[in-house]
Design a protein around this nucleic acid. Structure first.
Length: 154
DNA sequence: GCCAACGTTGGC
DNA sequence: GCCAACGTTGGC
């Protein structure tokens, strides 16, 4: 099983928004970066662990534990001319953007970006790499373990 | 609002 | 295929 960290802007879809959805499950719409798309399309499997991360907000950090809840399928927003995520080059026959559903398993305290950075065991977490902007990053097993421990210890 | 660090686009 | 210009991300 693989592990992932997935960023969401709380103004768009917070962990509370996701929890309020049916089955606490939301389609991860709006990813428009090929590397992040490829993770969802090619590497994720149902049941993979996901760290739900809030970005572009006052206190960025990990705010929930989730799981990959579907196989990849086309992001419907790419076909919607009214959507902010519309992509004129995409057609249902030739979709460009794929996503998975993400199911929140539990909300956690906010394990902040500052705390992550300060943790000696998390120095090489992909999220923390210099210049890293990817909205979806892989999380190594030992990082996952450390983060779960930190989340429980508060 | 700033800006570093990337990613994408398009002319050549 | 190069690379300059431009756009985006996202913390601060």
């Amino acid at each position: 099983m693989n592990h992932w960290l997935m960023k969401s802007e709380p103004a768009e879809c917070s962990v509370d928004d996701a929890l309020a959805a049916p089955d606490a499950t939301v389609p991860w719409v709006g990813v428009r970066n090929y590397q992040a798309r490829n993770f969802m399309r090619d590497a994720m499997r149902v049941g993979d662990g996901v760290l739900f991360y809030h970005s572009s907000c006052a206190e960025p950090g990990i705010v929930g534990i989730a799981r990959v809840a579907s196989a990849p399928y086309p992001d419907p927003t790419q076909f919607d001319p009214k959507s902010h995520y519309h992509d004129a080059a995409a057609t249902p026959e030739k979709p460009r953007w794929m996503l998975v559903d993400v199911q929140v398993l539990r909300k956690t305290r906010n394990l902040t970006l500052a705390e992550l950075r300060a943790d000696p065991l998390l120095q090489d977490l992909v999220l923390l790499r210099k210049g890293s902007r990817l909205s979806i990053t892989p999380v190594e097993a030992h990082h996952w373990k450390t983060i779960l421990k930190r989340l429980d210890a508060a």
